[in-house]
Nucleic acid binder design. Structure first.
Length: 262
DNA sequence: ATGGTAGAAGATCTA
């Protein structure tokens, strides 16, 4: 069973690429971020025509997440718990039945946080990460396969970016950001890509600007974090880099894991 | 120091 995450940077602008990727890569569950659409504006029929169920948590203009799946989820939760005043659509979670029981999958669009000296944006990112930690701690008590997939806007280690010096003061790489990410891992969550390879210079995002793709000036910020019950079932991971060279690409590429939940 | 690009907007904001 293939479970993937992809920040598509606008579902309307990316509909052709999304359809091509769903057809070629054929994930069983696809977690999308930055759909940049309200729920009613999501091209639901075009995705359903490819055999997918569609669950969205949209927002006008910015953000927005979705979970596409070949089987219908048993339960869907919209929004990250912990702050009733947070109006940004950055979290959706779904439970699926598999032969071995139930699995829980979340699509996460963690706040960017830049500029890091902004009085609102970086504190919002850190507060959001703490809310995610508290929610993840509760989910881990369920002792079921849990896949927290998404655009974390976190560069975990220096070798996860082309030039660490360039990112030293960026909200994606500041010590407090990386510490908050390590606190998630310390709960018992495992970075799936890191668990399956020792390779360095693995990137999932290349900026549109300054020829970043051509120069391989990338960063690894899209992650699958797995509970112990999920990592036990993980067979392989893949960073689907070829999509970055497509016409009209997203600046992110899909990251996927192959699982055996039989 | 600035701008470089892209998306959803339909003016700027976000990244």
């Amino acid at each position: 069973m293939k479970i993937a995450t992809w920040n598509i940077n606008g579902v309307k602008a990316r509909i052709d690429n999304l359809r091509a990727w769903l057809t070629e890569s054929a994930p069983d569950i696809a977690c999308l971020q930055e759909i940049k659409s309200i729920d009613e504006g999501f091209p639901r029929l075009e995705i359903e025509a490819l055999g997918y169920h569609v669950e969205t948590h949209g927002q006008k203009g910015f953000n927005g997440v979705a979970i596409l799946s070949k089987t219908k989820p048993d339960e869907v939760i919209r929004g990250l718990p912990g702050d009733d005043n947070d109006e940004q659509s950055r979290y959706i979670e779904a439970v699926f039945s598999v032969p071995s029981g139930a699995i829980r999958v979340a699509s996460i669009y963690l706040p960017n946080g830049n500029p890091a000296d902004d009085p609102v944006k970086y504190p919002y990112k850190l507060a959001w990460m703490e809310r995610l930690r508290l929610h993840a701690a509760n989910l881990l008590l369920l002792e079921e396969p849990l896949i927290l997939a998404g655009d974390y806007n976190v560069i975990p280690e220096p070798h996860d970016c082309f030039d660490p010096a360039v990112w030293a003061t960026d909200a994606l790489f500041l010590p407090q950001t990386r510490a908050a990410f390590r606190r998630l891992e310390a709960l018992g969550l495992t970075d799936a890509v890191r668990a399956t390879t020792d390779a360095t210079k693995l990137y999932t995002f290349w900026d549109y600007q300054a020829g970043a793709w051509q120069k391989n000036n990338g960063i690894r910020i899209d992650h699958l974090l797995l509970s112990p019950e999920a990592i036990d079932r993980l067979k392989s991971t893949s960073i689907e880099k070829s999509t970055r060279a497509w016409e009209k690409p997203s600046d992110h590429v899909p990251v996927s894991g192959e699982f055996d939940f039989a």
